[in-house]
Write a protein that binds this DNA or RNA. Structure first.
Lengths: 138, 138
DNA sequence: TACTTATTGAAAATGATTTTCAGTAAGAAA
DNA sequence: TTTCTTACTGAAAATCATTTTCAATAAGTA
């Protein structure tokens, strides 16, 4: 499994595989840090100087649409993206270096049902995120 | 407990209580819907026509600093604010009308410890949010 | 190899937020 | 009360992120 997978996905969905998109995908694919569009732009331009920031925005939009990346919400801002986890996964973020870990196995059924009963809401989805310090930063 | 409480808090922290701030506080205090700066501006101007949008931004900033309001993160955007809950509370949001409910009593200790062990992270805080349809909208 | 049309980067437009600034008014002190 | 300092105000300008426009280019099918 490599970044080629993402390029194939783009192709299979009717999008063209271009040098600009390769550069963006190469930066984001498998990166364990959440990156903003500008950060992607800066890193990708090291490999492909002619890249435009607009193309970064457009490519991230398509990758998100194909569920290959997902937006990361943080106290400092909500414009960063990370490779999407497989299935129902949650994020653990290092507050210092921005490193991201995925985890699953949260069991919120009991809590969800209890809250649905108390509030009368029909609960459809949940967001759970943990913040802390990674092994390196602590 | 009324919006006067918030005005007192502003005063006690060395900020002045002005007509503009009263208008903003009157709109946000006790409101069960998350409101964006523009929405606060539109509603507050009904009571105080001379209000400027800049002052709304500045007042929201101070209310957040005093932990009287908190920012609400949603799939559609992260610029809205709601009266802050007391203590450690989480949000339940109606996807249709934006109504907000607070809840507490999540017990994530077991999960948190297990993930800390697996990842080597020192976990400091967590975000939990539920989304669904409120009793009216469902 | 030719040809259609999606994609590109640059520039302009947009929208949200922040800064600047000179006039105003809150509220402490007299 | 009145005075006086200075925090606060709204308008306009500046900034920053994101989106749209557009003519040139190149992906990839025919």
């Amino acid at each position: 499994m490599s970044s080629e997978t993402w390029l194939e996905q783009l192709h299979d969905n009717g999008y063209r595989v271009t040098a600009a998109r390769r550069a963006v995908v190469d930066v984001v694919y498998g990166n364990t840090h959440a990156l903003t569009p500008i950060e992607v732009y800066d890193q990708a331009r090291k490999k492909y100087r002619a890249l435009g920031l607009v193309t970064v925005y457009r490519t991230l939009e398509k990758l998100e649409e194909l569920h290959l990346i997902q937006r990361v919400h943080q106290p400092i801002g909500c414009q960063a993206f990370i490779s999407a986890g497989l299935g129902h996964q949650h994020l653990l973020l290092c507050k210092t270096c921005g490193q991201v870990e995925f985890f699953e196995g949260d069991d919120l059924d009991a809590l969800t049902k209890s809250i649905a009963r108390k509030t009368g809401y029909q609960i459809q989805e949940h967001w759970l995120q943990l913040f802390g310090l990674c092994a390196n930063c602590k």
